[in-house]
Every structure is written in structure tokens, then in C-alpha cells.
Design a protein around this nucleic acid. Sequence first.
DNA 1: TCTAAAACATGACCATTATCAGTTTTATCT
DNA 2: AGATAAAACTGATAATGGTCATGTTTTAGA
Lengths: 229, 229
Amino acid sequence: MLEKSHKHVSCATCSARKNSLFGTYGESEVVDLNHEKMCNYYKKNQPLFIEGSFPRGVFCLNQGKVKVFTRGDEGKEQIIHIAKAGDVIGFRSMFSGEPYKVSASTLEESNICFIGKDDFLLMMDNNPTLRNGIIRELSKELGDRAQFITNMAQKSVRERLAFSLLILADIYGEEEINLTREDMANFVGTATETLIRLLKDFKEDQIIEIHTRKLQIVNRDKLLRIAGR
Amino acid sequence: MLEKSHKHVSCATCSARKNSLFGTYGESEVVDLNHEKMCNYYKKNQPLFIEGSFPRGVFCLNQGKVKVFTRGDEGKEQIIHIAKAGDVIGFRSMFSGEPYKVSASTLEESNICFIGKDDFLLMMDNNPTLRNGIIRELSKELGDRAQFITNMAQKSVRERLAFSLLILADIYGEEEINLTREDMANFVGTATETLIRLLKDFKEDQIIEIHTRKLQIVNRDKLLRIAGR
DNA sequence: TCTAAAACATGACCATTATCAGTTTTATCT
DNA sequence: AGATAAAACTGATAATGGTCATGTTTTAGA
């Protein structure tokens, strides 16, 4: 269980910060950042922002996981990205001047800080390193999504699942992968039933281990081979 | 037939410029831009850059169309984007420090200018408007791609074709849509045969007119309905 | 700890769409 | 203009994967 008071998370001691956009910040910048941010505790399945609304700032994950998704015509979610501690999300629409094109909500209980739009834009203006970090981040993501699109268009569900599991393993690191079958299906882009059947196959082929909800990769090489490059 | 000498394209008179990233440039900035760029004539199906190589600068389309694509495992192209006059392409990888994640080549004969990496980055440093324009551009594209991914994952080929035709109509404007069936299939994300059959259906339903290679939308409303929102 | 709801799982069925094989039409090059 | 290559098209076939129906297990909350 996470600490539910936000007072205990300080940017200076935030372990997630060093891998974040603010990783290069000096001491005085960290003090400023800490002053501008607000920290909140979120339960599982709480929304951070919703497709169609306008951004009021950015979210910086201190702890937890967040799914970023769009809804298709029938309301089915397509998960575009899963953010982890250290990730900053929600800045895209702030720059494009559009409403959010995606929604975000927590996958588990999380501590998440918020930085207001004006503060954030001011920081960007005054800090070329932050600015370049953001440009790099946007560019990198854009490249990733080109591959994501190609995977969706050309790979079989089985191949996409293998690919997705490798991504999830990266995101979850030491922890076991912990997603509902539905969320996982919405990440892979398939029906929940199909996903369940394929997970069973992978389990029988000793590629993964399933501990009820949680999931662990035991043969990464096989997954790589199935995923294809 | 386009003029094959590059000497005739000047940024000052470039009609594509006003809708481009450089649209807000003042007179002296245009002179500088014109000085830094090199202009080239490209035949149909000539590559601008290839996945895996490192960027040396950006490309600015004066005239023509360019497909931006990745190749899947089997070498099949997935077209991510089609650029038209006024579009600037190839800057993503320059910012992320990675090799190109996509390839680009001309779909028709084109006049395309090139601005070297150092010149372009310098311009960005000195020009907040350009810089913000680029950030806006990157952000906007990122949003578009989220929808693209969802379409790929959840829509049927028929729905995706309808959606794609609407996008293509925007890109081609007054002109008729002019793509090989293979390129169109690679944009929609389907097999060429399937695309041909669906085009035939659309033609029979009087949604499009086909003039050999070229293609025209005659019932935009029906397409919108098929594409879904 | 019990109960209701949510999540997980499995089977049967069928539509969509890819693949293969072949023909016809169009474009390109000399 | 004629030859050759490329693109467009058609038909038959098969499999991937979605949907629906139903049962079981797990989770969360009183």
C-alpha cells in the first residue's frame, strides 16, 4: 500500500526523477520544480485525463503505472502506451493546442505529480535542456509509433502478443507483468478470448509462467523469435 | 513535366512555403533560408532517405508527393504518411539522435529542397517561432498516429479504406488520387487483391469513380459513414 | 467470511481477409 | 509502333481470429 498523503514525495528525493525529463536538473532547478508541482495519490483505475478535454498541465509519475489509450467506434479501448515511474505524460496536446486525443488512467495505485501548464511552458522557455529533452522525447515516440502501426497492420495476433510481452517486460522490469486480460488484449489489439487462448499456448510452450493474474517471461529468446526482429 | 533544374525554385516565390513550417518567415529570414537550402528534381520512385541510415538534414517539398513508410518482416511496406507540397519531412530522427525509423521516396516527379542538419538546428535555436512550430508539428502527428493505431487495430479493411480515401482526398486536394493499387493497399494495411475488390465495391456503390489508375470521390458522405466518426 | 460482481476460461461457429494461381490491361522503353 | 514488363484484376481456397454462449474462478466489499 502506498502512502496516501502527497506531502511525502519531494522532487529532491524522488528516485524516479533521475530517469525522467528532469533527470539533468541541478539543485536549484529541483527546488523550483518541487515548488511548482502538486502530488496526488491515485487508486487503481482512476482517470488522469480524458480524450476530448483540454490539458491543464502535465503528469509526472512518481510511482505506479498508467495506461494511455483511445477508444474506437464501439468504445473498445486501444492502449497506445503504458507509462511507468519517471515518465511524464500529457504534454502532447498542450503543444498542439488541440484537445487530448487520448485518455489516461491508472492501472494500479500510484503517486502522480502535476505541473500546471503555465509553469511547465515557462520552464521550457527558460531551460533549453528540458526543451530539447521534450523534442527528443516526442521524436522518439513518433518513431516507435511508426513501428507500432506496421506491427498492427502486418503481424498476426500471435506475433503481436510476443512483441507486446517483450515491451511489457521492459516496462515492468523486476516486477511480474500485472494486467487484466482485457487490458492486455486492448494493448495487443485483439479480442480478450483470443488473447487468453494464446497465453495458454505460450504457457504450454513454456514461454511464460502464469500466476493467476500475474505473468512472467521464462523464455525471452522464443518470444523474440516469434515476434520477428 | 516539371522543370528539371533546381535553380528556378526560390523560397521567396515558393507557393508551398506559406503553408509550411516557414510560413511565418519574414523577408530577411526567407533570404537566409533560400541561401541555405539546395533544391533538387526527383523522378518518380526515387528515395529521399532509408530506414536505418542517419539523417543529414531535412527535406522540404516544393512540388510532388512523397510516401513515408516502414518495412515489415517480410519486406512489405506500410505507408505511415504521405507528404505533399509545403511539408517538411525527415526531422524526427535528427532530434532523437537515432537512425531513421522510416524510409521516404517520391510517388511522382517532385521538386524537393534540402536543408543541412547544422543549418536547420541553428535556425531552430535562433527562431522560437520555428521551434514552436516544430514542437506543434511533432505533437500533432503523435496524436494522429494514436488514432491511426486504433483504426488499424479495430476497424475492418473496408472501414479503413473509407477512412484512408478521405485522408487521400485531403492530400490530393483538387487533383485526382493517383497511387498504384499496391501503394494504396500498403497505406490501408491490406493485401493488394483485397484492396482492388473493395475499390470495385465502392465503385459499384457509386462512392468513387475510377479512371484507370486515378480515382475520385463522388460521395463523401457515404465514405464518412463507412469510415465511422 | 460470505456474496455479488468482475475477470478468466473454453467451445462452437462463421465472416473476413490473406494467399495462390492465373488472365487481362496498362505502362514503359527502344 | 511493337515488345516487354509491370500493374490491375478475377476466382478459388483456407485460415486466422472475432463473436456468442456458457461455465468457472477470483476479487472486492459488506
